[in-house]
Computed example of a mutant assay.
Amino acid sequence: MFGLFKSKSEVEKLQVKYEKLMQKWHKLSTTNRSKSDEVYAEAEAIMNKIESLKNE
């Protein structure tokens, strides 16, 4: 109830985006390998940004 209007931090937003990209990557890995590699690279870039924000 109290977290209803709480805004998400930058790390939380990036984690949600990362999870969505990883789900998309998994689906594409069986049908379109080159596209899945692109999505995976994008997800890894987001993970690196998350780690750098956590280290600050």
Rank of each mutant, 00 (worst) to 15 (best):
M1P: 09
M1S: 10
M1T: 12
F2P: 10
F2A: 15
F2C: 11
G3K: 14
L4V: 14
L4Q: 11
L4F: 14
F5T: 05
F5G: 09
K6I: 01
K6C: 02
K6P: 07
S7C: 05
S7W: 04
S7L: 11
S7R: 13
K8Q: 08
S9K: 02
S9T: 15
S9A: 06
S9Q: 02
S9V: 04
S9E: 07
E10S: 13
E10C: 08
E10D: 13
E10Q: 11
V11I: 15
V11N: 00
V11D: 01
E12R: 00
E12G: 01
K13H: 11
L14A: 02
L14I: 02
Q15R: 05
Q15S: 06
Q15P: 00
Q15D: 07
V16D: 14
V16T: 14
E19K: 04
E19Y: 01
E19N: 06
E19L: 02
K20V: 04
K20Q: 10
L21P: 01
L21H: 04
L21M: 15
M22C: 05
M22N: 02
Q23Y: 05
Q23F: 06
K24S: 08
K24M: 13
H26V: 10
H26W: 07
H26I: 10
H26R: 08
K27L: 07
K27C: 07
L28A: 10
L28T: 02
L28Q: 10
S29Y: 06
S29H: 10
T30F: 13
T31E: 11
R33N: 14
R33G: 12
R33M: 13
R33Y: 14
S34L: 13
K35W: 07
K35R: 09
S36E: 04
S36A: 15
S36H: 05
E38V: 14
E38H: 12
V39W: 02
Y40A: 10
Y40S: 11
A41M: 12
A41K: 14
A41R: 15
E44T: 09
E44N: 11
I46G: 02
M47K: 06
M47E: 09
N48L: 11
K49T: 05
I50V: 03
I50L: 00
I50K: 00
I50E: 02
I50T: 01
E51T: 03
S52L: 07
S52D: 12
L53I: 01
K54E: 02
K54Q: 04
K54T: 02
N55E: 11
N55R: 08
E56I: 04
E56Q: 09
E56P: 00
E56G: 06
